[in-house]
């Protein structure tokens, strides 16, 4: 992972509540405004449903719910970042719902600090590393892990809704 300490890469940062996260910009396919999704039965609650993205059916994940943050109302400024990730079963696209995108920054590998272990109350498994931009801390997301352990495999135990 430390391929040349001075190599830089570009990261798209976005806001979730009070926090700033980042993703490798090479994974980003497009950024689009929020639109109503089609719900899918038998999915974990943070998988909101699917959207039509230029003809392919793409699942949409609410990152706030994924990270157990307080749920926000979807407004006109809510955006969906569409990411394309290579997985064991081929290329997969997914959309993540965030409060808003903020910036594109260059980071060096040396600037990336490992996330400290915060015990069981805070999950850091999707955090690739931490970095400081200006006065803010940015958490770089490990999208591969997010997709691998989240969208593809996990099935929530079926739960009969009371009709």
């Amino acid at each position: 992972m430390m391929e040349g300490a001075n190599r830089t890469k570009q990261v798209l940062t976005f806001i979730l509540g009070m926090e700033t996260y980042g993703v490798d910009i090479l994974l980003v396919q497009e950024i689009r405004g929020w639109s109503q999704v089609t719900r899918i039965p038998q999915t974990p609650p943070h998988v909101l449903g699917v959207l039509n993205l230029r003809g392919s059916i793409v699942p949409i994940v609410d990152l706030r719910m994924r990270f157990r943050l307080e749920r926000a109302e979807y407004t006109a400024v809510t955006v969906i970042i569409v990411l394309s990730v290579e997985t064991s079963s081929g290329r997969r696209d997914l959309g993540v719902v965030v409060d808003g995108v903020s910036d594109v920054i260059d980071i060096k590998a040396v600037d990336l600090k490992p996330a400290p272990d915060l015990g069981s109350q805070v999950s850091t498994e999707f955090i690739q590393g931490l970095m400081t931009v200006g006065e803010n801390m940015v958490m770089l997301l490990d999208i591969d892990r997010l997709v691998g352990g989240d969208i593809g495999d996990v099935v929530m135990p079926p739960k009969v809704a009371n009709g």
């Binding site: 899918i40 039965p41 699942p59």
Partner: peptide, 8 residues
């Protein structure tokens, strides 16, 4: 293609 099989 992008998600998984859904029952039903």
């Amino acid at each position: 293609t992008n998600y998984r099989r859904v029952e039903g």
